[in-house]
């Protein structure tokens, strides 16, 4: 029994039953399939998270974001600037207690280099209802190239707990035709 020492002292020489061996081989091969699937997707798939990231101070990130906001703000909404940067450009999104700043307006089918960083605590970028989720750290600037392929209004929920106002932290991205 499993609660007593093995009856055969040389248990490591017992043969393995065929049915067990077959399952081990199937499970092992399945593991390889899942392993190579991730590598395959880097070539064939369209959804791969970039590994481009830089160390940055909150002040510097706020400065760069402000420069974009000053240049491309098209209107205001609920005291948030709505920024419409040119297609293909560098776009900045600030995460801070408890806002995603500013509101972005992007064009469908165009690519943007989205820079994400936090000015204070850790936050979670959760684009809804698309359901893309990326962690946002203070002190690190992550650059993700995104290509919105649907038009409409999208919410950005914070999905990393960031204190008492966590559930108030909602941002917005417009995608226009």
């Amino acid at each position: 029994m499993a609660i007593t020492p093995p009856p055969q002292r040389i248990w490591w020489k017992e043969p393995i039953a065929k049915v067990e061996l077959s399952w081990i081989i199937i499970a092992f091969v399945w593991g390889l399939v899942m392993f190579f699937m991730m590598i395959y997707w880097h070539g064939a798939g369209e959804q791969n998270l970039s590994n481009e990231a830089y160390k940055i101070t909150p002040e510097r990130f706020a400065e760069k974001s402000q420069a974009m906001i000053d240049e491309y703000t098209v209107r205001e909404e609920n005291y948030f600037p709505v920024v419409h940067p040119p297609a293909g450009s560098d776009v900045y999104l600030i995460a801070r207690l408890w806002q995603w700043w500013p509101i972005l307006e992007l064009k469908k089918g165009e690519t943007y280099r989205l820079h994400l960083s936090s000015l204070d605590w850790m936050h979670g970028f959760s684009l809804q209802p698309v359901n893309i989720n990326v962690q946002v750290h203070p002190g690190y600037e992550m650059v993700v190239t995104i290509k919105p392929d649907q038009a409409g209004e999208f919410g950005i929920v914070c999905n990393e707990y960031c204190g008492l106002g966590h559930h108030l932290m909602v941002g917005k991205i417009y995608v226009v035709e």
């Binding site: 990393e160 559930h167 909602v170 941002g171």
Partner: peptide, 14 residues
């Protein structure tokens, strides 16, 4: 979202 008090976002700015 996990760890989230209000999935209706009743008091959020947006």
């Amino acid at each position: 979202s996990r760890r989230h008090w209000d999935m209706t976002f009743a008091d959020a700015q947006l």
